[in-house]
Amino acid sequence: MSIGNSPEDERPFEDVSKEARPTVGRALQQARIAAGLTVDDVSSATRVRIAIVHAIEADDFAPCGGDVYARGHIRTLARAVHLDPGPLIERYDAEHGGRPAPTPAAPLFEAERIRPERRGPNWTAAMVAAIVAVIGFVGFTAFKGGDSGNDAKSQVAEGATPSAKSASPTPKKDKPAPPKSEPSDSAIAAAPQDKVTVQVSAPNGRSWISAKDHNGRMLFDGLLKKGESKTFQDSSKINLILGDAGAIQLYVNGKKIEDDFQPGAVERLTYTKGDPEVG
């Protein structure tokens, strides 16, 4: 009978290191699939571009534009798929060098301590400058007075009758610019009857929008800034996704859409030929 560890105690431990855990992108992809969401659904809910969602799920963070934006996208996508973003951010920092260390405060205080003392104003230089200015002003006044006397004598010799050319011309009144009017129901005549025309404008703020034709071809996918507008046209149907519908004003086939969109609401809309009707 031997005394000591049994063979079962000498079995190797299972690998439970951090490397065994899924990557940040893999964890986000698995959580999205488990939640029954597509990449389009996550992009619409978070306003993160579809290409960036695909890149992050493939652990490619270069399209994010930097570590700060990458952390923000990871946090947004994690919340959309019901994950705790804290462990994912920590894993990202561990794999990409961590957050930059804060600047120590000691050198700042040292720089403040060795700053030279302020000296008082140089009154001698100020007095010299003032004397030079007074002398220059006196000389200029005397010279100007002599020129004025000569001009007066010339005017008496030639006569004081003003010529017709010296009269100031009557200023012309500028015509006021015609006021810009918004598209109204009368614009229906300008819209082609055999096509569907959709104008999207952002008078109240910026909003991400996506527009596709009846074949699913992407017409536009991006941010519409405040004051900008886009017009889309198709032979039968236009599909829209509005990231912030409250900031958008729509004109379909020349008619203004009076839907009461709420700020921050995501709206999916479809418009066809004829009168504007939400599909």
Rank of each mutant, 00 (worst) to 15 (best):
M1T: 04
M1S: 09
I3C: 01
G4M: 01
S6D: 02
P7S: 00
D9N: 06
R11L: 15
F13S: 03
K18P: 07
V24G: 05
Q29V: 00
Q30C: 03
R32K: 02
A34L: 00
A35W: 01
G36H: 05
L37I: 00
T38L: 04
T38C: 08
T38R: 10
V42M: 06
V42S: 04
V42P: 03
A45Y: 07
T46E: 04
A51Q: 13
I52M: 06
I52H: 08
H54M: 02
A55P: 10
A55K: 07
I56D: 01
E57G: 00
A58N: 14
A62G: 10
G65S: 01
G66C: 03
D67S: 14
V68A: 13
Y69G: 00
A70V: 00
A70M: 03
R71P: 00
R75N: 11
T76F: 03
T76E: 09
A80Y: 12
A80W: 09
A80E: 15
V81L: 09
E90Q: 15
R91W: 02
Y92A: 13
E95C: 06
E95W: 02
G98I: 05
R99C: 13
A101R: 15
T103G: 11
L108S: 07
L108E: 14
E110G: 07
R113Q: 10
P116M: 05
E117T: 10
G120T: 12
W123G: 00
A126P: 01
V128H: 08
A129F: 04
I131S: 02
A133K: 06
I135D: 09
G136P: 03
G139C: 11
F140I: 12
T141E: 01
A142D: 03
A142E: 09
G146D: 02
K153G: 04
S154E: 15
S154A: 15
Q155L: 14
V156D: 13
E158Q: 15
G159Y: 12
K165V: 14
P169V: 14
P169N: 09
K172S: 07
K172A: 09
K175V: 15
P176I: 02
P183N: 10
S184G: 14
S186E: 15
A187Q: 12
I188G: 03
A191I: 04
P192V: 03
K195Y: 05
V196N: 06
V196S: 10
T197Y: 07
V200Y: 12
S201I: 01
K212D: 04
G216I: 07
R217L: 02
M218Y: 01
M218R: 08
M218T: 14
L219A: 11
F220L: 11
D221E: 05
L223G: 00
L223K: 01
L224H: 08
K225S: 07
K226T: 12
K230N: 05
T231Q: 10
F232C: 05
Q233H: 03
S236E: 06
S236A: 07
K237A: 06
I238K: 04
L240G: 07
A245S: 15
G246P: 02
I248Q: 01
Q249G: 11
Y251E: 11
N253A: 11
G254Y: 05
K255S: 14
K256F: 08
I257D: 15
I257P: 03
P263A: 15
A265W: 12
T270R: 03
V278L: 12
